[in-house]
Amino acid sequence: MSTTSPAAGIAASAAPPAPHTLGASLSADDFKALFRGHPGGVAVITADAGEGPVALTATSVSSVSAEPPLLIFSISAQSSASPTLARADTVVVHLLDAHDLPLARLGATSGVDRFADESGWSRLVTGEPVYHDVRAWVRCAVIGRMDAGGSTVIAAHALQSRLERDVEPGAHGDALVYHNRTWHRLGEQSRLG
């Protein structure tokens, strides 16, 4: 992973072995079947590299470190937002709950203007597009990108955040997850222990 900020604390790692040295791979269908049963939290990522705002829905957002505050996510090269995210210095990651399902669907729909409803978003003073009334958002500086198959993994350093709907420790908080090609709300009935 290359870094754009030496102070960010992420070092470049050795290149992974070439695929032909690893042996046989799972088929794409088998790999997709594995992860259909592995739920993921839902986020919408926005950016603007100078040609107008873009947004996409992602289930790959993960926290990496609290000190420094780092997160990662991946984007498919097939996404219409991919070229902008490849150039953007900053992004806004919107962490969604079930109340934000319309935004999750909007970010996942191809061929639509995700910013047509001007009442639903604005720009931060630093210029990034941000959606209103979401559970939480975090503005981040992109510190590294790594090509990974047909996707790019992006590492980002959290700079600023807003939390609209906090979740008490141990509470479900109406979490929105994507599982087996369907949106789900976690609730009291989903608690196992």
Rank of each mutant, 00 (worst) to 15 (best):
V54W: 01
A28T: 04
S62R: 11
R135A: 15
L186E: 07
M146Y: 09
A108I: 07
R105N: 07
G50I: 01
A49C: 07
T84M: 13
H172L: 09
A33D: 13
A156K: 02
T21G: 00
A98L: 00
V153T: 11
V167C: 09
T84A: 15
V92L: 13
A108S: 15
L70A: 10
G149A: 14
S62F: 09
L192G: 02
L71C: 13
P102R: 01
T90V: 12
A136Q: 06
V92S: 08
R105P: 00
M146N: 08
P6F: 08
D174M: 12
F115Q: 11
A49F: 04
G23M: 08
A171C: 06
L192K: 09
V92T: 10
R123N: 11
T182V: 10
T4L: 12
A7N: 11
T182G: 07
Q78E: 15
L176E: 04
V42S: 06
L70T: 05
V64R: 09
H99M: 04
G173P: 04
F115N: 11
A33K: 14
L192P: 01
L103P: 02
L103H: 05
Q78F: 08
E164Y: 03
G107L: 04
H20I: 09
P19Y: 14
S27E: 06
T90L: 13
V91F: 07
A58K: 01
R181W: 08
R105Y: 00
G149C: 12
V54K: 02
I75A: 08
R105W: 00
A156T: 03
E188H: 14
V92I: 15
T21P: 00
H20K: 10
R185V: 14
P68W: 05
A58I: 01
I154A: 02
T84Y: 10
A175W: 03
V142E: 05
V112M: 13
L186H: 08
G40Y: 04
A24H: 08
F31M: 10
H132L: 07
A24Q: 11
G173L: 06
D100G: 04
A12G: 07
D89P: 00
A14I: 14
G52Y: 00
Q189M: 11
R135V: 02
V91G: 04
I72E: 14
K32L: 14
H38D: 00
T90Y: 15
R162V: 03
A33V: 02
Q78A: 15
F35K: 10
L56W: 01
E128N: 07
A7G: 06
S60I: 02
H157D: 10
G144P: 02
D113R: 12
R135N: 02
H157L: 15
E118H: 14
P53E: 03
G9W: 09
A104S: 14
L186M: 14
L186T: 10
I45W: 01
R181T: 08
D29S: 11
D117P: 08
R139T: 01
G41M: 03
T3E: 09
L159C: 09
G9N: 09
S74D: 07
G40W: 05
